[in-house]
């Protein structure tokens, strides 16, 4: 996905990645989030991205991995950090839970996530509406053709 020159193929490959991730969520018995993943990410967000890509009629991008020493350095740095993170995960392998919790099957369902969202986390749930209204207002302010 990150190596395609064409933005549309990048986006479509990202949709595929998101669907695979939904599959991984299913193996973790998180049914609700798997469905939301497909509906929100693959469905809503990526459709929006594809719309914008088509709308803007982009030219092919010029980039190269090795052309610029700064980006090369950055990418190498990310690789090093990745290796480090994986090493740390492997080192602490024994200190993290070994088997999936018996509660997992129950807590992945719509019912129990819904209970959490509307009872314990009702306050952040309301506050999330603030994020959404900010984004809605902001998107309109920035993208509207003519104001007033």
């Amino acid at each position: 996905m990150v190596t395609r020159k064409n933005a549309v193929s990048s986006a479509l490959l990202l949709v595929v990645t998101f669907c695979f991730l939904a599959g991984i969520y299913l193996t973790l018995q998180a049914q609700f989030l798997a469905v939301v993943q497909v509906a929100v990410y693959a469905g809503a967000i990526m459709v929006l991205v594809l719309f914008v890509i088509m709308l803007l009629n982009l030219k092919e991008e010029r980039f190269s991995l090795t052309g610029n020493w700064k980006t090369l350095l950055g990418v190498l740095g990310v690789g090093a950090i990745c290796a480090q993170v994986i090493a740390i995960i492997l080192l602490s392998k024994d200190k993290i839970p070994q088997t999936i919790s018996p509660k997992a099957a129950v807590q992945g369902t719509v019912e129990s996530v819904g209970m959490m969202l509307y009872q314990t986390y009702a306050f952040p749930f309301e506050m999330a509406s603030l994020v959404l209204i900010t984004a809605a207002v902001g998107a309109i302010v920035l993208a509207k053709k003519k104001l007033q």
Binding site: V40, A44, A128, L132, A135, A136, A139, L142, A143
Partner: peptide, 14 residues
Amino acid sequence: MTVAAAEAAVGLAI
């Protein structure tokens, strides 16, 4: 996921 949707809207508007 909520926040990502909000960011998508704002980012694409920018």
